[in-house]
Amino acid sequence: MTGADLPVWAAWLVVVLAVAGAAFSLTGALGLVRLRTFYERVHAPTLGATLGMALILCGSMLLLSLIEGRLVLRDALIGVFLTVTTPVTLLLLARAAAHRDRHEGDPDAPPRP
């Protein structure tokens, strides 16, 4: 089966999943602009790295499974590795920001744990 002769319901489902995932990622990017402080902003891109990523991967797995005529779960690995590695980046960013703010004596600096 090629992409062209996909049943209509499947095509719609794939489109809905992909667009919903993209919408969550876009909302996350918008959050970077709209939110005010560093600590608020860090929350925003997580949208794209969690639900946005999951929805797009579900759409991709569904499409590939239908086209190849068997269950294709390869994309799930992207989700696993992304989920496992994102905390490292966020943790380093948060620690660096906390260190900077405390060092500068910023009144909004995080308290000591």
Partner: peptide
């Protein structure tokens, strides 16, 4: 905590066992 947006792991102190979240 990272997979649920809205919570951010800022710092964990292994001496006191306290976790600071935003």
């Amino acid at each position: 905590l990272t997979a649920t947006p809205g919570t951010l792991w800022v710092q964990y102190d292994s001496d006191t066992g306290r976790l600071l979240m935003h």
